[in-house]
């Protein structure tokens, strides 16, 4: 139990570090990679919390697909050249230098708060299998997923395909 706890704590620390790197790094590509890294670490945490089904989705979709989308967007829009990046960097640093400090203050400040941590709820009649819950209880969500995926398809048609024709 003690080892588990320490391990989880360690994962949390590197999660924060990855998030911070995502925000602070100066190149957009690295920022997108940092996002994927954050996603992977989140997946680790989910794995530790026994959510097997979600880990697959998070790893393939969030860490994989979304970083592909971001990186292709960045390369499509031709990011700045090296010298321009260096020029922008100073101004960026002036704006973002306070963030780690802010994060530290937030973390330390919050750890002094006392909260009631007893969230255990009765687990009597609920399903234990996520697949059954998804299909039997959350079927309206599934319908919503179908609608939203269709919307996404038409979004791609409208925003990307007609653009190329122009």
């Amino acid at each position: 139990m003690q080892i588990n706890y320490t391990l989880n704590l360690f994962i949390l620390v590197i999660l924060v570090a990855a998030g911070l790197w995502t925000v602070m790094t100066r190149s957009l590509i690295r920022s997108a990679i940092g996002l994927a890294l954050t996603s992977v670490i989140l997946t680790l945490l989910m794995f530790r919390f026994d959510s097997w089904l979600v880990t697959v989705f998070e790893l393939s979709v969030c860490a994989g697909l979304i970083s592909v989308i971001f990186i292709s967007t960045i390369s499509l829009t031709e990011p700045l050249t090296k010298s321009e990046v260096l020029k922008h960097m100073k101004a960026r640093l002036a704006r973002f230098i306070y963030l780690p400090l802010l994060i530290l203050v937030v973390g330390v400040g919050l750890s002094f708060i006392k909260v009631n941590l007893n969230f255990q709820l009765p687990v009597a009649e609920i399903e234990a299998d996520a697949r059954k819950v998804l299909w039997n209880m959350r079927d309206l969500d599934l319908l919503g997923q179908v609608v939203i995926i269709m919307t996404g398809i038409f979004g791609v048609i409208v925003l990307f395909r007609e653009m190329r024709r122009k």
Binding site: R138, L140, D141, G144, Q145, V147, I148, T151, G152, F154, G155, V158, L159, E162, M163, K166
Partner: peptide
């Protein structure tokens, strides 16, 4: 479910707004 459908309407609104580009 309310959230999911709100998102459906929002996303289709985004696309519709920039329909004429």
């Amino acid at each position: 479910s309310l959230y999911v459908f709100i998102e459906v309407v929002s996303i289709s609104s985004f696309i519709l707004i920039c329909f004429n580009k």
